[in-house]
Design a protein around this nucleic acid. Structure first.
Lengths: 142, 142
DNA sequence: CTACAGGTTCGAGCGCACTCTAAGTCAATA
DNA sequence: TATTGACTTAGAGTGCGCTCGAACCTGTAG
């Protein structure tokens, strides 16, 4: 697989793929005789995993640590597990924070909705003939 | 309240507070006669809310939009609500992603744990007298 | 009076994670 | 054979969100 195909299948840009290789997040790819990168499909599994780590907010520094342990191979499993466990804990904490923030957002949004409802009630309670207060933003599409 | 106290009570650095004011995320603070910032306690509520937005990943650009609408005051409620609703939806999606990633992390960690258990079983199945394979990392605290 | 803590402004610098430019190579097709 | 387009490299540039340095000012305590 050439880099172009990997771009299609991984969702990363060629720039990013080369950058990741440069910093050691992706293993140095084999080259064909004109020194173009030639990938094995298995790289997609690793890229997908890196994507999870990224999505969950792991900094590249730490992914590099994990990648290095992985390259080292046997004997690094415990450290890799610990690294992931630590990360998992951080993610759990963060998810809890996000859920707390969502509740606050809900109540904030609820407050605006109530305010709008009060305005609307007042509006419909106006005498016939001039229902919309000045500055009312009603898009009325169509 | 002077900036020093606000630092204590908000958790932001003085640098950050000034920066936020500079870009318009915090309203221009009143100054005392020696042109030092003098805050009203109500600023803490706004800073806390900005903190929620930040925690949930809202970029400063968008907080600025919200802050500008808020400064404008009446008549911007609908847009503020819409902004927060859009954001809430993104956060929900992100939380779902994080939860999916957590499951994957769990199984990855589980895989390492199983591998370690297999090694341990093999280890304890070794003949008496030389139980620990070379390189075993057992901290044995205390 | 002097020292010092704690403030002020402006603009520069930093760390992160890319993203792109420039100049060159190579293989396949018209 | 000439051109096209996908690739290569090294290194520069970008956008974000701060973070800091330098020079200066002010109110209070010793």
């Amino acid at each position: 697989m050439k880099i172009g195909e990997l771009v299609q299948r991984s969702g990363l840009s060629a720039y990013t793929i080369r950058y990741y290789e440069r910093i050691g997040l992706l293993p140095h790819a084999d080259r064909d005789r004109s020194s173009r990168r030639d990938y094995d499909a298995s790289i997609l599994v690793w890229i997908a995993f890196l994507g999870r780590l990224k999505t969950t907010g792991m900094p590249i520094r730490e992914m590099l640590r994990y990648a290095a342990l992985r390259e080292q191979g046997a004997g690094t499993e415990t450290e890799r597990r610990q690294l992931l466990e630590t990360h998992r804990e951080r993610v759990r904490v963060h998810v809890a924070e996000l859920n707390a923030c969502l509740l606050i957002l809900d109540s904030k949004i609820g407050g605006y909705a109530d305010a709008e409802k009060r305005i609307k009630d007042y509006d419909t309670a106006l005498p016939r003939g001039r229902r919309e207060p000045v500055g009312a933003r009603k898009a009325r599409t169509r």
